[in-house]
Design a protein around this nucleic acid. Structure first.
Lengths: 213, 213, 213, 213
DNA sequence: TATGAATGAGCCTTCATTCAT
DNA sequence: TATGAATGAAGGCTCATTCAT
């Protein structure tokens, strides 16, 4: 008759009280990503997320106002991760940072590091489709899209004297990154495809850089 | 005994019905595309579609069995349109068809002709996101994805002697087309972006071809 | 493109015009019974019936006003069949008709002849359940129920001098017929059960009659 | 660190919930019976039941998974009631329990005690009709049908030495109980009929028993 | 603070009925 | 007379949200 699971949860909740709201939110965001991976974006409900987080259904509204609030927070989390990903790589780099090396790192971040987990990939694509009809998501998407372009352009300008040509190279590279990512995500054998994608992208960058040496 | 007049009428009515059915299906498919444009994939319900088509809700099940049936028919329609787009361009071409010209036409089809309507663009992106969680949609998506690659490869092989290099060029171009399409679709000023995209893509192709002349 | 099936139907319809409305109605009633057998009472729709009769869906409303109208006509048809069943047996009887023989014939009619087809059995039970909430069906059911009792009583009175005792015997027999029919219908191996039921019922009648000889 | 007070509250709430759940389920089952009485099986929808229970429509899926789940629970409840009815009567019996007395009690349970409420009677008949098209209901019906026969046979064997004859008596009695129940349920003046039915049934049993004394 | 029981709006689907032909 | 295309009301179910505890 006794629901020990509930007791356990109580203990947890007591401890959580000691911990922070931040921790809870983080757990929920991670649970949301896992749920999208397992059940798809459409199949993800408040229940699947809260179960994944071993919390109650009401907690989501409690912390994020609504399901949409959690989704937005999740997206912001992913965007932030993507941003930090590049910074960390640069920080961890032991060689002198040439423009070309930095460009390769951008590819790394976008194709290798960040996208290697299916769950993130799925969430990402769903988020893009959703952005078409959700102004807030659209805004976030554009910020991210422009950051990629800006990041590429910054390095290309150091290699390509002609500003217009640098812009073209940046745009091409951004498109290739997104296109390869999209095609890899949707492919049957996506793990393999991502490796191929990285190779193609880096080769393209190398070709661009050598053209202007 | 036999009322041939009545039989004749039946035949007529059968033919009329076939015409009506095709027409109705076509109207519903277009309504579905418009609804997805306006309300998004998730926001598209049997009601939004039937209202868009000025028909009753029941008609969708009547003609397509289910909502999913209409969705599948819609994507098949778009895929077919895309396929025919290239064939028509080639047929309408008055100059001798060089490999490079054919490559440009592929770009035209995928970026200019086909994608110029926002509704189609949006529907397309929604379908891709959906394909992650729907095996049937995924299959259709893959067929289309591979067709683009095959089409590109076919022409590149006539320009680039090295088969491996031709494959790389094809894959790069496919990625660039998809990436540019994706970025343009999601951009604020998508019409302009599509023009830019076409330019970038064609330039990339030209560069690839000249490299091997 | 030509729907030959439709033409065939036309020919049929021409012939039907020559025939009578009665024929059509009869065909529809039989189709209704077959549909109930195959699809259950709940699973029987205007479409299943009209398909079973190779006619259009609209024809049912046309001839019977509504689906309910066809159901009622079907019940009336079955009741009439049951009534005629006994008369035919008596007419076909070559031995002198003793009261006991007549009682056995009533059992025959109710358990053997009439009920041997699953389709009729199913329709019958559904009709009884439905009668609880449908005054018109209830009326028909009661007419039938009382006829069985009256029929039994008529013969028992010739065997049992005491009128009260004859009534008791009639009521018991009626109950046993209905009970055995019900239990047989619902049993897994209903064909076998119906044979058993007939045996039990006849033995009961024999016992009743011998008690008063 | 541990807030034992909170844990204690949880335990309490768990116990309360278990109580609430049982109560709610019970209320819904009773509402279902009432709805079937008033609206028939076909006329009974999730809405009629939830309205009858003064609850929301969603609550049924919440507690029973689906409408079918509630229906099954309802019939299981009725079957259990029927089973307990006999046990209680036997337990409450102050005289020595002769086989004949036990047989009378079986009649009492099936005709008097259990069936005296119209709602139950109607529900019961609807279930039987439904059982024809629903394997799960059919299984439950058969279990019940066989239990009645087994119960009767158990007592008859103590009175009738010949096993075959005991089986015949049991089957006849079972049929008579079901038949009388069915006829009484469907009759206009069903209360009176049930009393009559009880009398007839008991007389039949007495007659059977005396035959072998 | 955190729960989860309860709600009810909205979804897709089925199907009896209507009506132009 | 007979068709079957079209309707739209009603069904069961899902699920985000609310709220008493």
């Amino acid at each position: 008759m006794l629901d020990y699971c509930l007791i356990e949860r109580s203990i947890k909740s007591v401890m959580a009280r000691v911990g922070t709201e931040k921790l809870r939110k983080q757990e929920l965001i991670e649970a949301a990503i896992r749920s999208i991976e397992n059940n798809g974006f459409q199949g993800t409900t408040i229940l699947t997320i809260s179960r994944e987080a071993s919390m109650s259904a009401g907690i989501i509204s409690h912390y994020f106002g609504s399901k949409q609030g959690l989704i937005l927070a999740t997206i912001r989390h992913l965007l932030e991760q993507l941003k930090q990903g590049l910074l960390q790589q640069i920080a961890a780099c032991e060689q002198p940072l040439t423009p070309e090396l930095r460009l390769q790192m951008i590819v790394n971040t976008n194709l290798s590091c960040f996208q290697q987990s299916t769950s993130v990939t799925r969430t990402w694509l769903c988020f893009w489709a959703q952005a078409l009809h959700d102004p807030e998501l659209a805004r976030l998407q554009r910020v991210n899209s422009k950051r990629l372009q800006r990041n590429l352009l910054y390095s290309y300008k150091q290699v390509i004297p002609d500003r217009a040509q640098a812009l073209i190279a940046a745009n091409m590279t951004a498109a290739m990154i997104d296109g390869l990512w999209l095609r890899s995500s949707l492919s049957e054998n996506s793990e393999n495809e991502f490796k191929q994608a990285e190779f193609l992208c880096k080769q393209f960058i190398t070709a661009q850089c050598q053209m202007w040496k």
